[in-house]
Simulated scan of single mutants.
Amino acid sequence: MEIFDDVTAQMEAIRLPLYAVSVSAAHAADSPLYLFLHWHGFQRATPLHLPGISIPPRPVPSSLLQVDGPWYSDLLRDEVVLQLAWRLGAWDVRRTYARACNEIGAPPREALQCRQAFGEGDEDHPVTLDETPQGRRDAMQLAARRGYWRWLFHPVKGGLWSQLAQDDETLASDGARAGPCPVAPLPTEGRGRQTVYRMGRITRLILPRRL
């Protein structure tokens, strides 16, 4: 699976736990999927060491991967995300539809959420920009006009919860899963704004610890 291989290559390069994966796409057949890898870790803002001055570390920027369509069906997007989440050992995937925010009366927070979904306007969670940021900004503007989809899941493989892999019989020792995802995409028509796909089980709760 090419996307799975790209994600695992990023894990090997960054060498930090993967906290979450979020995916965004404008509600249009030709709009790419923008896949954000959110790392759990901090780094110094500068390599300089100034005597008597403490420079606090900043969150490691998220990595960004682009998956091109065209997407002739919304279910094709779901299938790509579900396959990736399954291989990475996620216990669930949350799919959310957000309406267009360029409409009269739309609250400002919806416009901010749209920008954040495409890697803009969030200083606390910086994003490593891709080589063609204009395409991503075009997708964000399209999402503001037509609405957009967003998916979120927390991987076990290479993530904070890898120590719990033994609690789920569907997971291998490294927190990954093999084979095709058995969870089928659900139609978007006639459903609410949020859908949760269940993939595995967890018997204990572990909370992330700040490094």
Results as ranks from 00 to 15, higher is better:
Arg44Gly: 09
Glu79Tyr: 12
Leu84Ala: 03
Trp39Ser: 07
Arg77Tyr: 07
Gln83His: 11
Pro70Glu: 07
Val60Gln: 11
Leu84Pro: 00
Pro51Met: 03
Pro70Gln: 12
His49Trp: 09
Gln66Ser: 11
Phe36Met: 12
Trp39Lys: 05
Thr46Glu: 10
Leu65Ser: 11
Ser73Tyr: 09
Pro51Tyr: 01
Asp78Ile: 02
Gly41Leu: 06
Pro47Cys: 09
Gln83Met: 07
Gln43Asn: 05
Val67His: 15
Val80Gln: 15
Asp68Ser: 11
Arg44Asp: 05
Ala45Cys: 06
Ile55Val: 06
Ala85Thr: 04
Arg58Glu: 10
Ser54Lys: 08
Gly41Pro: 00
His38Asn: 11
Val80Met: 15
Gln83Trp: 01
Pro51Val: 00
Pro59Val: 03
Pro57Gly: 12
Leu64Cys: 13
Arg44Glu: 05
Trp71Pro: 00
Leu76Trp: 13
Asp78Tyr: 02
Ser63Thr: 09
His40Asp: 09
Leu76Gln: 12
Ala45Gly: 13
Leu82Gly: 05
Leu84Val: 01
Ser63Asn: 15
Leu50Ile: 10
Phe42Gln: 11
Ser73His: 14
Arg44Ser: 10
Val60Ser: 01
Asp74Thr: 11
Phe36Glu: 03
Leu65Pro: 05
Gly52Asp: 02
Gln83Ser: 12
Leu48Gln: 10
Val60Lys: 13
Ser73Asn: 12
Phe36Gln: 11
Pro59Tyr: 02
Ile55Lys: 08
Leu37Ala: 07
Ser73Thr: 04
Arg77Glu: 06
Pro59Trp: 07
Val80Thr: 14
Ile53Thr: 03
Gly52His: 03
Arg44His: 12
Glu79Cys: 08
Pro59His: 03
Arg44Lys: 14
Leu65Asn: 04
Gly41Ser: 08
Pro61Arg: 14
Leu64Lys: 11
Gln66Pro: 03
Gly69Ala: 06
Glu79Arg: 15
Gln66His: 07
Val81Tyr: 02
Gly52Ile: 00
Asp68Gln: 12
Asp74Glu: 14
Ser54Arg: 09
Gly41Arg: 13
Gly69Pro: 01
Gln66Leu: 05
Val81His: 03
His40Glu: 08
Pro57Arg: 13
Ala85Ile: 04
Asp74Leu: 11
Thr46Pro: 04
Pro51Ile: 02
Val81Gln: 07
Leu50Gln: 08
Trp71Ser: 00
Ala45Tyr: 08
Pro59Gly: 04
Leu64Tyr: 04
Pro56Gly: 06
Ala45Asn: 08
Leu84Phe: 05
Phe36Gly: 02
